[in-house]
Amino acid sequence: MIKHRYAHEIDPNGGSAAAVLARMVEPGQRVLELGTGPGTVTRILHAKGCKVTGVEMDPETLATCAPFCERTVQANLEDPQWVAPLAGESFDAIICADVLEHLRDPRPLLNQLHGFLKPGGSVLMSLPNASHLTVVASLLGGRFPYQKNGLLDHTHLKFYGREDLDALLRECGLLWQHWHTVQVDPAQAELKAYWHLLDEETQAFLKAKCADGEVYQHVVRAQPATDAAHLQKLENDRTAMIKAHEAQVLELNAQSAAQKAAWLLEKEVTTVQNVALINGLMAQEKNTQATLAWTESQLQNHKQSIQELHAEIAALKQSTSWRITAPLRKLLRKISD
């Protein structure tokens, strides 16, 4: 098997753009895949029972996909005649997986796709995001470093952000119905070296200000912009808003429940603490009452002793000896004076 520069294994249930695109296709559908490459998406579609027509410019690459396709067409997508072998055919889905950015002008191709879609059919596409934070970081460093693959693959001729892609679709009579993003942390992307050159304050600023700064790829399902498609988009937007509202309500309820639980726990702890404090104060009061009772008892004893002493003194003053010694005490006072 030929080793293609874009060949890689993916998890059909994973979060890669190829896996997301493949999951947008229903089992058994007829699919036109433009730019099959090494067949990353083709193999998944084949496993789902889809009938795939693969279009690829490189004959050797196309040969690797042939076992997984119902039909293959070797053609250059920038040649307006690429459609000739497919005249009269129609498909449930047309896939452009990381293809449009390789074309000098993708508009002629997109304009040709309407005629190949069955009623209700969709154009599915993935494109790298030109506003990823690592691209911004490289530009801040005065660089636009093309790579062998990734965001700045040296074969990329066009670069799109979200609004640019939306405008391109509208110009070509297409209306997006579902927009998915593949997120990659700038510290993990292939241009991470330029991100790491920025100080933490600048990184935080860019993360706060750059729209789609961590979006690595856009994955979009679009349909011809008919009245039915506009109505479907309104319904999709309504459903998305309802889901977002429900998610917000669930989050608020969870926050409220957590706050209530924390309040009840704090209240319980406070109650336990207050009970302990009250018990302590009651014990202290009991000890104080006991001390007061002991002190009162001692005071009464002292009062009784004083009364007894006063009685003894009064009895002494009434005694004969006190009267006999009165002149002597008087003399002693004079001597002391």
Rank of each mutant, 00 (worst) to 15 (best):
V73E: 00
E70R: 09
D92C: 09
P80G: 05
V73Y: 02
T64M: 13
I94N: 02
Q74L: 06
D79E: 13
V73G: 01
D79G: 04
T72V: 15
P67R: 10
L77D: 02
T72H: 07
C69S: 02
N76L: 03
A93H: 02
A97I: 02
A87I: 11
Q81C: 13
P67Q: 12
R71V: 02
D92K: 12
A93W: 03
P85Y: 02
D92F: 05
T72W: 02
C69Y: 00
C96L: 15
I95V: 14
E78R: 04
A84G: 10
T64S: 14
D92W: 04
R71C: 08
F68E: 05
C69P: 01
L86T: 12
P80C: 13
L86N: 10
D92Q: 09
G88M: 11
C69F: 02
P80V: 05
P67L: 12
D92Y: 08
F91E: 00
I95M: 06
C65G: 03
A87E: 15
A75K: 01
F68T: 03
I95S: 04
W82Y: 05
D92S: 08
A75S: 05
E70G: 06
D92E: 13
E70V: 06
R71W: 04
Q74V: 03
I95R: 04
L86F: 10
T64C: 12
I94A: 03
N76W: 07
L77P: 06
P67F: 06
I95L: 14
E89P: 04
A63Q: 14
I94G: 02
A97N: 15
E78V: 13
I94C: 06
F68W: 14
W82M: 08
A97S: 15
Q74Y: 12
C96M: 14
P85K: 05
W82P: 07
E89R: 15
A63E: 15
A93G: 06
I95G: 00
F91N: 00
L77C: 08
D79S: 09
Q74R: 09
D92M: 04
